[in-house]
């Protein structure tokens, strides 16, 4: 009894001290430049997102923002780097499907409780893209895929695109799917055009110029409803592929970051994303400010994504 009391006093004392300390931390925050870590190469879609999303935040927080890219093993190197940094809010990183997948793959000793997803920035729809004139339409493609081997192009093996390809395979009931990984979306489009691969799931900006030039056909958009600005493109549900796979991107910090710092960062990032430049950026891919959500909504969404991926974990990892 005596000991327990002592212990509780100690806990209380620590709590008071750490609370006081974190208040100081929050006032002092940021005490230096903030690093933003991307898990794919500079110049790609994620890099552009991060730069637009944090552009105004530097001014709001009165600090400089350094963009770094730690590629390799989907998000493995990014998370390893984050792990090596103190949980003080000076290291932000991209949170996307790759983050959840990497945690699941066991290549890093982290799970969803080790990070705090702060804000969501984009919900970009994906499209089914094939060589121009190759198929009559979405239904024709699905019929073909049920009885013929399909070569599907995408980015990193074990990444978001690969997982979506697997979900697509299972939803359609494809006879056989070979996943061919490329480093950049530009190469994927070229290989769809020259017929080396049959199909790819891409964001609009990744194939827009080739679609305009008539080099590729768009079979469907993987969303519950048709897009307002592209009403002619049917949804996956309409052509017999009931799956939704918008590409979600956001920012996060390490768990254990003082609560006040987390609040300050969340507020700053949300404000940064309300800027005109960010809204313009969202418009570019047919989105609006509904793509931007704060910590609570994004955290819940990340948890759902994390849990959903458990279902294909076995297939992906063969375990």
């Amino acid at each position: 009894m005596y000991r327990l009391m002592d212990g509780m006093k100690l806990v209380a004392a620590v709590a008071i001290v750490s609370c006081g300390a974190s208040q100081v931390v929050a006032d002092d925050f940021p005490s230096g430049p903030i690093e933003v870590i991307n898990n794919s190469k500079p110049g790609g879609g994620s890099d552009i997102f991060l730069r637009f999303a944090t552009e105004a935040a530097a001014e709001i927080l009165d600090t400089s923002i350094i963009h770094l890219s730690k590629t390799g093993g989907v998000a493995t190197n990014t998370l390893k780097y984050v792990q090596s940094k103190p949980a003080d809010g000076h290291t932000l990183f991209i949170v996307n499907a790759g983050t959840a997948l990497t945690m699941m793959s066991g290549s890093i000793d982290m799970d969803q409780d080790d990070i705090i997803p702060l804000v969501r920035g984009t919900v970009e729809p994906e499209f089914i893209v094939v060589q121009a004139g190759r198929f009559e339409g979405g239904a024709d493609f699905i019929e073909y895929a049920k009885s013929n081997p399909i070569k599907q192009a995408g980015t990193k093996v074990g990444g978001n695109a690969h997982v979506n390809a697997l979900i697509m395979k299972n939803t359609i009931g494809m006879a056989q799917q070979t996943y061919v990984p490329f480093e950049k979306s530009g190469e994927i489009v070229i290989n769809v055009i020259n017929g080396n691969v049959d199909v790819a799931l891409l964001n609009h900006e990744e194939f827009a110029s080739q679609a305009a030039a008539g080099q590729v056909d768009v079979l469907a958009v993987l969303l519950p409803e048709r897009l307002e600005n592209m009403p002619e493109v049917p949804t996956g549900h309409e052509i017999g592929l009931p799956m939704d796979s918008p590409q979600i991107r956001g920012l996060g910090v390490r768990a254990g970051t003082p609560e006040e710092v987390v609040d300050k960062l969340e507020a700053a990032l949300l404000e940064s994303m309300k800027s005109d430049t960010y809204v313009e950026y969202l418009k570019g891919s047919g989105q609006d400010l509904t793509s931007v959500t704060g910590r609570d909504a994004f955290g819940a969404e990340f948890k759902t994504m994390y849990d959903n991926y458990q279902s294909i974990k076995k297939e992906l990892l063969g375990g």
């Binding site: 093993g73 190197n77 390893k80 074990g158």
Partner: peptide, 20 residues
């Protein structure tokens, strides 16, 4: 470094500086 397609470390000899 880390193999881009499989995420396997090659010839890193446990050096974190070589992961990338």
């Amino acid at each position: 470094g880390t193999d881009l397609t499989t995420g396997v470390e090659r010839f890193t000899f446990g050096q974190p500086d070589l992961y990338e």
